[in-house]
């Protein structure tokens, strides 16, 4: 039935609320094709109707509604994906894991890059000229330094004061909270509380 293919796209998103499914190029193409057919057939029937035959009104109405439904599903598909992609910038940071990036279509990758750039620029301009990282301090901080354990072999981390820390798997460190919070959020370090 009309609109079923477009609805499939929405169901795909609904089925996996915790992840981003691969962009369904083929599905989107099929919906656009269905819309083209509906539109052309309606054009034909409208021409007949305009010349005085009112019997085709019902069909025009039915197809027109289906066109609108397809449009709504397509736009909702794109919109909800973008919402998810935007949120990823806040949770993963500016670099996406390759397996996730693989599921984005070209324009989405570009959109993510732009969003990331705008956000970074904005954060640079606030905070009295020093910039303010809005992704920091997700909870009220209790102390400036925190103890962390490294969960993976990450390599070297250069701190703001120039000191270089080697983050090896299972090594423990006392680090400034502001510099290791992003790494904790990305699952590289684990925050230890006694």
């Amino acid at each position: 039935m009309f609109g079923d293919k477009a609805f499939e796209l929405i169901k795909e998103l609904e089925r996996c609320p915790d992840s981003l499914p691969a962009f369904n190029d083929e599905g989107v193409r099929q919906v656009l094709e269905e819309m083209r057919v509906l539109f052309e057939q309606n054009q034909k029937d409208v021409n007949v109707s305009v010349s005085g035959d009112a019997n085709y009104f019902a069909g025009v109405q039915l197809r027109h509604t289906s066109l609108e439904r397809n449009k709504r599903c397509l736009l909702a598909y794109l919109y909800n994906r973008l919402q998810y992609i935007r949120q990823m910038r806040w949770e993963f940071g500016s670099i996406l894991p390759p397996e996730i990036k693989f599921n984005l279509c070209e324009p989405e990758v570009k959109w993510f890059g732009n969003y990331s750039k705008y956000l970074a620029n904005y954060m640079k301009t606030i905070g009295d000229g020093y910039g303010l990282d809005l992704t920091q301090d997700t909870k009220p901080p209790k102390s400036l330094y925190i103890e962390v354990r490294c969960l993976v072999d990450y390599g070297k981390l250069e701190l703001e004061d120039g000191e270089i820390v080697l983050l090896k798997k299972n090594s423990q460190h006392l680090l400034p909270r502001s510099e290791c919070e992003p790494l904790i959020r990305q699952g590289i370090l684990q925050h230890i509380v006694h």
Binding site: Q43, V46, S49, V50, H64
Partner: peptide, 11 residues
């Protein structure tokens, strides 16, 4: 219906 018709006539 009129909207629809206008819409298609236009195109």
């Amino acid at each position: 219906m009129h909207i629809s018709i206008l819409y298609y006539c236009f195109w």
